[in-house]
């Protein structure tokens, strides 16, 4: 429910900005066919990987500290 609402708000904002300022070239077509979410997913995955790696290192160092 909440996710739907956020999504709707974002979509609404995007549509209003598209309608209001169509003169400057932006990546509107990329958004209209929805493929931008793929890029977002890729970036989020990469960051999640880095985050997981940091957690792994943190645990390893905690173990070394306890020795």
């Amino acid at each position: 429910m909440k996710a739907k609402l956020t999504f709707a708000t974002i979509a609404l904002l995007l549509i209003t900005t598209t309608v209001l300022h169509a003169q400057t070239e932006m990546a509107d077509t990329m958004r209209s066919n929805g493929k931008i979410y793929v890029v977002v997913a890729v970036l989020a995955t990469i960051f999640a990987g880095i985050f997981a790696y940091l957690v792994y290192l943190d645990r390893k160092i905690t173990k070394a500290e306890k020795k």
Binding site: I10, L13, M26, I36, Y37, V39, V40, A44, F47
Partner: peptide
């Protein structure tokens, strides 16, 4: 990452 790519920005 998510908001930075999807939220509206000035044109």
């Amino acid at each position: 990452v998510i908001g930075g790519l999807l939220l509206p920005v000035p044109r």
